[in-house]
């Protein structure tokens, strides 16, 4: 087999066909189409790009998308930690079912989640009617966006934290307790530092997903200009007005943001893995 400098010797057959097919398919389906975003932006005048990505409605959408994603991520971290804790540490009837339910937001099509959440949180919905009595409006407000993104983000945090909690040996907690620590001190000094990297990873994963999320948000948000338009929706709007260059410019901003975020996630995961191995 050729390419001694490139590939380490191996008796197994089929490397070159498998490798070439992988690279070809990856290029045709992913890399070349994706490069279109940047090549298209490169042929657009800088002025048009700047106007597209900095118009007031687009800036308002960044604010909503980032703000709602961060708030939803924080809610997911709090609720997700609680749920992961209960699922790992306590025994109760129906536990396997509760654990399976966690993955539902991954499995449910986003459009289905979108219309279901909208109907739940409108003023005469199952949940919305009680919130309405308290004067809280959820559907068709930024709060609705937060609700949808929490639905989407929660499983990421739970599934990040669960294995870490399950692996953590409780002897550390016992040792702390036998040295006179209260349960609260054990929690803040022993347990929390242990799960903090996993919480951070879960938060970043939820955030990355939330920033690009479309289907579950556009129904409950109501899509009012300047108020409840998320950034992905503006790409769709620009496409409908045949402003391909404008849509592409916003897409480039989103792509760069999510790649930076994914890079951060990779670093976080590498660090937490090292942390786990060092123990």
């Amino acid at each position: 087999m050729a390419g001694t400098g490139f590939k380490r010797f191996n008796v197994l057959p089929g490397f070159w066909p498998a490798f070439s097919y992988t690279v070809l398919y990856l290029s045709l389906i992913v890399l070349i189409p994706l490069s279109a975003v940047f090549l298209k932006s490169a042929t657009t005048s800088w002025d048009h790009i700047w106007r597209s990505i900095s118009s007031p409605s687009v800036v308002a959408s960044y604010r909503l998308s980032f703000g709602a994603s961060i708030i939803a991520g924080l809610i997911s971290v709090a609720a997700g930690f609680l749920i992961a804790w209960v699922l790992v540490r306590y025994e109760f009837p129906g536990k396997p079912l509760a654990d399976a339910v966690v993955d539902l937001p991954f499995a449910l099509p986003t459009a289905v989640a979108g219309i279901a959440l909208t109907s739940l949180y409108t003023e005469n919905g199952w949940v919305g009617q009680y919130l309405a009595k308290l004067g809280i409006k959820v559907a068709f407000t930024p709060l609705g966006v937060v609700v949808a993104l929490t639905f989407i983000g929660l499983p990421f945090v739970i599934r990040s934290v669960q294995p870490v909690l399950a692996d953590s040996d409780q002897e550390l907690e016992e040792a702390a307790a036998s040295l006179g620590a209260t349960r609260w001190q054990v929690f803040t000094r022993v347990i929390f530092p242990l799960v903090r990297p996993a919480l951070l990873t879960g938060f970043a994963l939820a955030l990355a997903r939330a920033l690009g999320e479309y289907g579950s948000v556009i129904f409950i948000s109501g899509n009012m200009p300047m108020k409840t338009e998320i950034t992905p929706l503006l790409i769709v709007n620009k496409l409908q007005q045949y402003d391909y260059a404008g849509a592409t410019a916003i897409a480039a901003v989103m792509l760069i943001t999510s790649f930076l975020l994914l890079l951060t996630i990779n670093l976080l995961q590498r660090r937490s893995r090292r942390f786990m191995e060092a123990r």
Binding site: P33, L34, A36, V37, T110, A208, L211, G212, E213, Y214, G215, P232, L233, I235, V236, L239, A247, T248, A251, M254, L255, S258, F259, L261, L262
Partner: peptide, 11 residues
């Protein structure tokens, strides 16, 4: 890591 909307846009 790509938003669904961008996934459609590229094509």
């Amino acid at each position: 890591g790509v938003s669904p909307v961008v996934s459609g846009l590229i094509y």
